[in-house]
Nucleic acid binder design. Sequence first.
DNA 1: TATTAGCACTCTCTAGTATCGAGTGCTAAA
DNA 2: TTTAGCACTCGATACTAGAGAGTGCTAATA
Lengths: 351, 351
Amino acid sequence: MVEEMSERKIRVLKTIIQEHILTAEPVGSRTLAKKYDFGFSPATIRNEMADLEEMGFLEQPHTSAGRIPTDMGYRFYVDSLKKSELNSPPSIEVYLQQLAKEYSGIEDVMSGMTRLLANLTQYTAFISEPAFTESRVNRIQLLPVSKKRLLLVVITDNGLVNNKIINLNKDLDEKQLEDLNKILNKRLKGVLIEDIDQEFLSNLQLELQRRINYTAEILESLQKEMSNISTKKGMKIHLDGTSYILEQPEFNDINRLKKVLRILDREEELQKILNDINNDINDELSIRIGAENELEDMENCSLVLARYHIARGASGQIGIIGPTRMEYSKVISSVDLAAELLSKLISSTGR
Amino acid sequence: MVEEMSERKIRVLKTIIQEHILTAEPVGSRTLAKKYDFGFSPATIRNEMADLEEMGFLEQPHTSAGRIPTDMGYRFYVDSLKKSELNSPPSIEVYLQQLAKEYSGIEDVMSGMTRLLANLTQYTAFISEPAFTESRVNRIQLLPVSKKRLLLVVITDNGLVNNKIINLNKDLDEKQLEDLNKILNKRLKGVLIEDIDQEFLSNLQLELQRRINYTAEILESLQKEMSNISTKKGMKIHLDGTSYILEQPEFNDINRLKKVLRILDREEELQKILNDINNDINDELSIRIGAENELEDMENCSLVLARYHIARGASGQIGIIGPTRMEYSKVISSVDLAAELLSKLISSTGR
DNA sequence: TATTAGCACTCTCTAGTATCGAGTGCTAAA
DNA sequence: TTTAGCACTCGATACTAGAGAGTGCTAATA
């Protein structure tokens, strides 16, 4: 029952998948034999196809149609792709210099890269903002915004910036604020973001209470924000090229389209998907094909994503969402390239 | 030829439009007479319909179908709606208190309100971030992020916050930075954002050069950012409920859908649309129906938007994009309510 | 024994045709 | 001025037939 995968079978399978990716139609033996110059006849291909179907790599939409790849077929294809060499990416340096001129500031780089990746691949692209894991506080600053309102700015040793408005019940004068800033910096500088938890801060509060009459609310906000940025909960996701999905013939079916767009419309949904993948592979390129995705509504989609890195520890995700029938070869090399570019763009200090 | 608009015609027209909004189908005289209890027969309605068609308020998809409203028909309907009373919105205070608890910080309030408005109306909602017109600098602060990298934070007198990373070619030490911050604050506090232009800054530079050796790049970035935030160019637009469009039967036609989604996918496109409307009406609720929109691809859509205000001058836009056949009554009152809520939520100092 | 030509069969897709029904415009009567 | 009546229009739906692409199986071939 369990057949061996002969060289010829592999060749046939790969060709079918490539042809299907190209045309979005079921692939038949006759067409295949005509278009590609195998050394054998359609009948032989038919036999191989029947075998490949039995093995689970192909399926027929209906009895008298050609074959289309199953998720398992794509999986085989993708795995064999990763081993062989991919399109060597164009020189990174060229891109880098140009991009560095166009964008400044993380926010800007992120949305710029998302767009770039979407344009490059012609699929929907996303980038999640970096989580602050293993980052240490380098500077913390409270600035007065208006009466009873402060801006909290946190800058880490690896150059990440986060800011947040804090609403208060009482007012603090300039002098108190300056004191507070001094103490906070003194006590927090060099501390790991994830270590600034409730316990840490209630100790801090004891010290503060002696000098400043009103700190509970500030520390509470501080703690909440620290936990947010270190766990990446609610972390922003940049999205671009959503409308490219519409160009894919498999999504002319409005119900399929709805499923996907509903996911893309909900940031929390995406966060959940990314976090799940986050946990099981840490560094390599991750690929989820069709039903490999936890979410049932993603069954017609594939997801290709990489992790980009900023200095020590801090990292985020960048990738593509497209139909199962996507141009994996192109997408994989593009995501790879984009991740590398993004890492360099953000980490590069003053380019 | 130019007929008078009798009371009865108005009644028929309005009823047809309401019925069409409800069903999304062409409205026929028989159905109408059966469902609504006019004092006259289908034949009379037919005559009125023929008149209304000649006057441009209705049209027939084909000879033997019922009537659907034209853009002009909707326009008449909407104008007459605005005069009569709309659904009185629910008590704002109730919402306010709840929302103020959930959100903190502008970013948060904005995306929260966008989602709220989308859920309320079941159409796509958007909010543009407030432009800094008529805002004055209250505090300006440069913070070191890493070598050759600064964070510029600008806080205005009306409580708006903006920040931006600046890349430098040289490095500044703490002392220089402190000096620079002092001088910048002294010279810029109270100045209108839009007054901080090239000329203003080149004067400033003369003064600075004496004390700090390296400022050109910083001032250049400062100027660029000031011009960005005062002209609202590239101002962020929050969007939510995009997938609600899919529920509208008129967008089962994939080509119509493509047109709209392609616009929503491009922030610049939206910015352009909003800026155009921005210019011609300043305060009241603006409504663009179908072909009234400049953009041809918006011909099947209507846009309802209001301006929200934060303290003196600073304001942004909030609204809905939906099919021409939208529930104007509900949408108008919702947008009105949302604009008011947003204004209060953002301006409220410490609620 | 592996391959292939031949052939009957299957199933989707498209075009053509008939029918139904909601809706219209027009005419003539109330 | 309104309305009942009626012939007519046209999209939507259902049905049918034929074409085409593809298959699996069998028997002949290398």
